Computed example of a mutant assay.
Amino acid sequence: MTDCTRLTKVAACTAAILSLSACGLPRSGPTKAELLDASVVEGGQAYVVAVNDNVNAIASVDQTLGFPASFRNAAVVGSDTIRAGDVLGLTIYENVDDGLLAAPGQNAAILNEVQVDGSGFIFVPYAGRIRAAGNTPEAVRQVITNQLGEQTPDPQVEVRRVAGDGAAVSVVGAVTAQGVYPIERPTRTLSGMLARAGGTVVEPEITRVTLLRNGERGSIWFEDLYSQPGNNIALRNGDQIIVEQDTRNYTALGATGQQTLVPFEKQTISALEALAQVGGLSSSIANPTGVFILRREHESIAERLVGADLPSDQRVVYIIDLTEPMGLFHARGFDIRDGDTIYVTEAPYTQFNKGVAALTGSLGAVRTVNQTATGLGG
């Protein structure tokens, strides 16, 4: 066989392999070139942005949670605060024989059941309508004493709670003991109430604590409750505390160790950590120059990235080249967000290798059939 013949056959085989690669071989997704062709610059519908330090600074979003100022500024309430619906007991002592309230021959009047009405008031004869809800028994005692002091000399008043739940909050979700708990001296703050409920049953690093109060909502990370004292807010009657595991996740596809939906393992995850969570890049087929993060980016961030006014949120495709000198640093500085898709493209030679395998496998199968047919004919 001449050299020319050999070259002709090699060329024919190469053409066949390339033809196979282009039309029918299986693959994990689009190639790097195909994703780059999706750029708005190329007439596509996404902005393709190469990740660098400047891009990381723009795309980084503070994921810190926090309570509204109304929660943080609320003062601690006493555990004996009177609430609407509570029942109080009053005893009123007078230093005269013929008092305002006492029966003849007695110097004390006992009012065993004085209910706090829906508006938070009670009625005491000769003292009038008195605000009780929101006050302590001691504060109510002083008001009644002052009111009666204008009509009888030096009255002595005792106020006690006879019945009523007082202030209480509900704790639900990922705690040891869900339930409704009274606000008592040890449980007047969020940390005390969570401790009363047995603490969280999931990893503290991925636990969120949400508090609902009068139509307002605030959330913090469980760890921040102890690292930032301002988050240990005072509780109020009717508060609802929800403890839950972080539900954020991202999707890993392409030439990675796993192709799966991945939950966040901590509050912030970089692109490098996200790749490590799924086993890194597949060493046999991955293209380290084609690591993509696909995201629906907020309008304000997209405008800063592309340097132009945009009408709405935009599809943005971030690309990281891990073979560049700073590639690993850029990947470590890029924060993954909830709902992101990480896609690693296959190396260009992968499709060629698949073509070779398909072609040689097909030729081998044909050769086997021919040999079998020859044997049967003989």
Rank of each mutant, 00 (worst) to 15 (best):
D3G: 05
C4I: 14
A11W: 09
T14I: 13
I17P: 00
L18S: 11
S21E: 08
S21Y: 09
C23T: 14
S28G: 10
S28W: 09
T31F: 08
K32H: 11
A33T: 09
E34A: 15
S39I: 04
S39V: 03
E42T: 08
G43D: 02
Y47H: 14
Y47A: 07
A50G: 14
V51I: 14
S60W: 11
D62F: 12
L65Q: 08
P68Y: 02
S70T: 13
S70K: 13
N73I: 04
N73V: 09
V76C: 13
A84M: 07
D86L: 13
L88V: 01
G89N: 12
V96H: 03
V96P: 01
D98H: 12
L100N: 06
P104F: 01
E113C: 03
V114I: 12
V116W: 01
G120M: 00
G128C: 06
G128K: 03
R131F: 07
A133I: 07
T136P: 03
T145C: 05
Q151T: 01
T152L: 00
P155Y: 10
Q156Y: 10
Q156M: 10
Q156H: 10
V157K: 08
V159K: 02
V159Q: 04
R160L: 08
V162I: 12
G166P: 00
A167Q: 09
S170W: 03
G173C: 08
T176W: 01
A177Y: 06
G179V: 11
P182A: 15
P182K: 13
I183H: 05
R188Q: 11
L190T: 04
G199Q: 05
T200P: 02
T210K: 15
N214Y: 00
G215M: 03
F222L: 13
D224Y: 14
D224A: 15
D224N: 11
Q228N: 11
E244Q: 14
T247C: 06
N249C: 11
A252E: 00
L253V: 07
F264Q: 01
E265L: 08
Q267P: 00
L272F: 08
L272D: 10
A274R: 04
A276T: 13
Q277S: 10
V278Y: 09
G279R: 10
S282P: 03
S283L: 13
N287W: 02
T289P: 09
I293K: 02
H298C: 04
R304Q: 10
G307P: 01
A308N: 13
L310G: 08
D313R: 15
V317P: 00
V317D: 01
I320H: 04
L322Q: 07
H330V: 05
R332F: 12
G333R: 02
F334A: 00
R337K: 15
R337P: 00
G339H: 10
T341N: 02
T345I: 01
P348Y: 01
P348T: 05
N353R: 10
V356S: 05
T360D: 13
S362I: 06
G364P: 02
G364T: 14
V366T: 07
V366G: 03
Q371M: 11
T372V: 11
A373L: 12
G375E: 14
G377D: 08
